Computed example of a mutant assay.
Amino acid sequence: MLTFYSQERWNNWINQVKESKFKIDPNAEGLGREGIVFLDMEEDVILALCKVTGKLQLGTITKEEAANSIQGMKEIVLAKVEPMDDDKDIMIESVQSALVGAFAAAECFVAGDYDPKQKIEDLVMEAAKAEEAGDMDKAFELMGKAGALILAGKKFDSDKVYEKIPPESFVAEGVDGLDTIAAVLAGGIDYTDEPDEEEE
């Protein structure tokens, strides 16, 4: 199986979190210097995901290889992390929640399970309504389709939806993930390097 993201790579991020002096400061804007590690670890996983979907678009890997690679990454990244302290644990959970949406997006993209004519903002708003109604499966599915559109090259303006969705919600964390996908793609990706390793 092609491996775009290894257990060792995830463990390195977890160790960086353990060594950080991060504390949640309710009065601060943003996460502060010690909190950058959470943004970086999320971005690193999404970069690997974008490489999978990008190589699929380029035709250098098959749909099956892409789907298997995404599944392998999910098993690493979404596994329960050993507790550290309340603040760090909250942030790790937040990163994992954002990544759940990113994985859903990649899976939707690989399966071709999205409509290119739909608007990302509309899907996100529908997802927020579904979450409010308690239909988490529907919310999850809609966020996946929204993310697939970003992976397919559609532009996304998160500012248009942020003010309309509850800040402490699955959809809000999912929008963080979508934002990171858009930022990673905008930054350009080098598809010439090979996956980390190939296992029989």
Rank of each mutant, 00 (worst) to 15 (best):
I61G: 00
T62C: 08
T62F: 11
K63H: 10
K63Q: 13
E64F: 10
E64D: 14
E64K: 10
E65Q: 15
E65L: 04
E65Y: 12
E65F: 12
A66C: 08
A67M: 02
A67Y: 01
N68C: 01
S69E: 03
S69Q: 09
I70D: 08
M73G: 10
M73D: 02
M73A: 13
K74P: 08
K74I: 01
K74N: 05
E75Y: 05
I76D: 12
V77I: 07
L78Q: 13
L78R: 10
A79D: 08
A79W: 00
K80G: 04
K80Y: 06
K80S: 07
V81E: 13
V81D: 08
E82L: 07
P83H: 02
D85S: 05
D86L: 05
K88D: 12
M91Y: 07
M91C: 03
I92D: 05
I92C: 08
I92L: 15
E93C: 02
E93Q: 11
S94D: 08
S94Y: 07
S94M: 11
Q96H: 07
S97E: 13
S97H: 10
L99G: 08
L99T: 11
L99M: 05
V100N: 13
V100P: 03
G101H: 03
A102V: 01
F103W: 05
A104S: 14
A105S: 15
A105L: 11
A105N: 01
E107R: 05
C108H: 12
V110R: 09
V110C: 13
V110M: 08
V110G: 13
A111R: 14
D113N: 14
D113W: 00
D113T: 04
D113V: 03
Y114Q: 09
Y114C: 06
D115Y: 01
D115R: 00
D115T: 02
K117N: 10
Q118R: 15
I120W: 05
E121S: 01
E121K: 01
E121R: 00
D122Q: 11
D122Y: 10
D122A: 13
L123R: 06
